[in-house]
Amino acid sequence: MKGVVFVELLAMAEDAFGEDVVDAVIDKADLAHGGAYTAVGNYPCAELVKIVDAFSDHSGLSPDLLQRKFGHWMMGFFAQHYPAFFENKSSSFEMLEAVDQEIHVEVLKLYPDAELPRFETDRTGEGQLQMVYSSPRPLVSFCHGLIEACVERFDETAEIAIEATPAQNNSTTFRIDITGR
């Protein structure tokens, strides 16, 4: 997992709970890297889950909720640091469709060995998008948060249904229905 995710997760935690809490939680969580991450590094995903669980313990918020909130945070981070991806996009669907087709292509240029999840999209009807997320990592709620934040960023509202993709392990289907813009 790319280091930027860890860096931003800790940044979000600092923003939400303060530096002292983050320091305390990291000390307690017994992390292999002692909680020091760089955006250009790679770290095991299990460590990310461990950090989320630690903050969940500390705050009483569920890990799923924390992941969702982190999804929102990351969308803001992306918009701030990689505005080029957001130019020429007029809707959340266009943005979501670009994840596999544009963004991951660029990521691979910088990190040829990056293990990226797959996002297959299919417009199933007017204002309807089906997005199948396939990854061995248990980050469904994080994706959910990203999708929600994406819809908001394009000033849209939507209903998002989540279900396991039939007959396919490590895969989740998001059904997005735009309800207003």
């Binding site: 760089t38 955006a39 250009v40 240029k109 910088l110 990190y111 040829p112």
Partner: peptide
């Protein structure tokens, strides 16, 4: 980190 990414891109 940004420099490193820049160099990676150039290399690519």
């Amino acid at each position: 980190e940004a420099l490193l990414e820049g160099k990676s891109r150039e290399l690519f």
